[in-house]
């Protein structure tokens, strides 16, 4: 077990880039090739992809620039500038084989980002954009595990689909760590600020963090809501337990929840259409 933990940590140290969906990369590329595209347009599209968002935040927080606290995509893009963002996008790598689970993970992350934004705005929290970004990135550890173990991980999850066991549990049973911890390591190693790394690390156990607990709680609730809505295909399909700490910390109740669900379902239609568009591009390419 300890071997697996070390393997993941070493793998992260060696990981210079992470793959993402061909569809999103080709969409971004066509935006980049159009010289009239604005930074705002690029930011919108980048914010739909956990991998490219993470890479942009990593670059903005890298020691060569000397900024320490860049936690939103829009700020990262302002500081890096159009040309650097463009070349980073052009150097994106894609998944060689597209499994349904990869698209599912992508949809889930995107949906969680949207849900977190709705929750944060409804609760009038500070730093909504940071919270949505943390939610977008919350499962980035799964990309690492998928990349390192390939088929093995895929099989494990597939065999569990019927039973519905949560992926973090399966991961801990088999590897002695889970995607939240792996994601937390990645976030730290990539110098992402704590506002992001803490919610990523603790979205399955908000009790265990003393800092940024509100943000971790929103990310947890966003994760739960997206599962509850049945939004994404593949991967975890069952709703996990709601952590009482998160519920209480955010002061949730039935009527707030009902408003959030209403707004979320409305927004998810657009997200679904966007996802189908991306998926259609993937189909055309493969």
């Amino acid at each position: 077990m300890e071997d697996f933990r070390n393997d993941f940590r070493n793998f992260i140290l060696d990981t210079r880039t992470l793959p993402t969906l061909p569809g999103i990369v080709s969409k971004l590329n066509s935006l980049v090739e159009n010289s009239k595209s604005s930074l705002q347009e690029m930011a919108r599209l980048v914010s739909s992809d956990q991998v490219i968002s993470a890479r942009i935040l990593r670059l903005a927080n890298s020691p060569s620039y000397g900024f320490y606290r860049v936690s939103t995509i829009s700020n990262a893009m302002i500081l890096l500038g159009v040309d650097v963002v463009k070349s980073l996008i052009l150097s994106s790598s894609i998944f060689e084989i597209m499994e349904n689970s990869i698209l599912g993970l992508w949809e889930h992350s995107l949906g969680a980002g949207v849900a977190a934004n709705i929750i944060a705005k409804r609760l009038k929290l500070q730093e909504c954009e940071e919270i949505s970004t943390a939610a977008l990135l919350h499962d980035i550890g799964k990309v690492i595990i998928r990349l390192k173990l390939e088929e093995e991980y895929e099989m494990l999850l597939r065999n569990n689909e019927e039973k519905g066991t949560a992926s973090d549990l399966i991961e801990r049973q088999n590897f002695g760590t889970d995607h939240a911890e792996v994601g937390g390591w990645l976030a730290q190693n990539w110098n992402l600020p704590e506002k992001l790394s803490v919610p990523i690390r603790f979205h399955h156990n908000v009790d265990e963090t003393e800092i940024h607990q509100v943000k971790a709680s929103v990310v947890h609730m966003a994760d739960v809501l997206i599962r509850a809505s049945g939004f994404s295909r593949g991967g975890d399909t069952c709703v996990p337990r709601i952590q009482p700490t998160a519920w209480n910390r955010l002061g949730l109740n039935d009527s707030i929840l009902s408003e959030i669900v209403e707004e979320l379902e409305d927004k998810l239609v657009d997200v679904k259409n966007f996802s189908m568009e991306i998926h259609a591009t993937d189909d055309r390419q493969t």
Binding site: R227, A228, S229, G230, C238, V239, R241, D254, V261
Partner: peptide, 30 residues
Amino acid sequence: ESLERRFRLVSDDPLAEKLKNVYRDYLVRT
């Protein structure tokens, strides 16, 4: 039916139950 299926592992969690009811209301209403 698929709502019930998604919530099947947390039927003993009162908070998840609340969320399920919110979703059920939403589905019925819309």
